[in-house]
Amino acid sequence: MSACVIMTEKSECIFFTYNGFRLHAHSFGSGSPVVLLHGFPEYWAIWRGQINGLVNDYRVIALDLPGFNLSTAPSRPNRMRSEDISEALLALITHLGIGQFSLIGHDIGGLLALACAARDPARIARLALVSSPHPADFISLRAGRPPDTPKDYADRILAHDDTGLFKPERLSFWIQNSNEKSALQAAMTSSDCDAIGALYRDNLAFDDLARWASLPAPACSVRAIYGDSDPFLPVTMLEGPYLRSLPNVTTRKLAGGGHFLHSSHPEWLGREIREWLAL
C-alpha cells in the first residue's frame, strides 16, 4: 500500500495504491465527508456542478474508478470484481483519515457504492444511487427481455463486442459544454478500455445474479434519484423489486430527466443531494 498527496490551490490531488489498484482522487473542502463515484463513460470531474454546491459545507472526495482516467487496475483474472474494488475504495477513504461518510454513486458507480455498504456497513452514513439500478434488478430484468430485443452498449461489452464503442468522441456525446467535452475525451483517452469492459463482465453477467440478490441490504438510509426518461435504464429497472425491497429506501424522480442528471440538471440534483444530506 502506498500513497501520494499533491496539494493544489483548490483541492488535494491524491494517488493511492492498494492491492494492485492505483486510485486517483480529489478532495475538496472540509466538514462531514461525502464520497462521489462516477459511472460510465465518465471520470471524477463530471461531479463539478455538485462539488461546487457542497464544498462550502462538506469535505467532498471525487475519484476515478479503476480503469478510468488516471486510476488503474491490476492485471489478473476477475480483476474488476466489486469485492476487490470496494476493498480498495474503502482503504483509500481510511487513508484520508475518514471514518463514517456519505456515499453517492452514479450509473455503475452505484453498484460499487452498494458493494462498499455491504463490505463495511457501519462506515456508510447514507447512500444515494443516481441513475443507478440495484445490480440484481439490472441483471434479472435484462435476462427477462424478449429474445429479439435490440442489443445495447451493455450487451456489447458483456459479449466482448465493443469494437468502436470506446472512441472518446463517441463517449462524450452527452456533454454540451465544449471545454467539458474535451476534458472528458482526454480522460477517456487515458482510460483502460479492457478494465472498463471487465467491470461489466466481472459483475453484471447473468450468472452474477445470485451474489447480488443475496447482497446484504445497506444498514443506512438509501435514496434513489433518477429521471423518468432515461434512454438507457427504464424506470421499471431503476425502481425494480430488489431496490424496493431495501428497508430504508426512498426515491426522487425527475419528470423528463435523462441519464446524466449531474450534467443536464446540475442545480436540481445538487438541491436533492443537499436536502438528502441534511436529513
Rank of each mutant, 00 (worst) to 15 (best):
A125V: 02
A113S: 10
S140C: 11
A143K: 07
S191G: 11
K151P: 05
A187C: 08
L141Q: 06
D194Q: 12
D120Y: 01
I175S: 06
L171N: 08
F138K: 03
K151E: 15
A117R: 00
A125H: 05
L158A: 05
P133N: 05
S172A: 15
Q176Y: 07
D194N: 12
D162M: 07
S131G: 12
D155C: 08
I139H: 03
E169M: 12
D162I: 08
D194L: 10
A187Q: 05
R170S: 12
R156G: 05
R123C: 02
S172F: 14
S172R: 14
L184T: 05
S182W: 10
A125P: 00
A115G: 02
C116K: 01
D161C: 09
K181F: 13
I124Q: 01
Y153T: 15
S190L: 15
K151F: 12
T149R: 09
G164E: 11
A122V: 04
T163G: 07
C116E: 01
M188D: 03
R170L: 13
P121C: 02
A159H: 08
R170W: 10
D152A: 09
L127D: 00
A122L: 06
P133S: 04
A125N: 07
T163C: 08
R126Q: 12
A136Q: 03
P150W: 06
T149I: 10
E169G: 09
A154L: 09
D152V: 10
A136P: 01
A117N: 01
T163N: 09
S140I: 12
D192I: 07
R142D: 06
C193G: 09
K151C: 14
S132P: 02
T189C: 13
A122E: 08
A195W: 06
D194T: 13
D137Q: 05
A186C: 13
N179T: 15
L158E: 04
A125Q: 09
D137F: 02
P147A: 12
A143T: 08
S172L: 14
S131L: 03
A113F: 01
S140T: 12
A128P: 00
D152E: 14
P146G: 10
G164Y: 11
M188E: 06
F173N: 10
H134P: 02
F166C: 04
A128R: 00
A115L: 03
A159I: 08
N179W: 14
D155V: 07
D155F: 05
A136V: 05
L165R: 08
S131N: 07
S172N: 14
D120A: 12
L129E: 01
L158Y: 03
S182I: 09
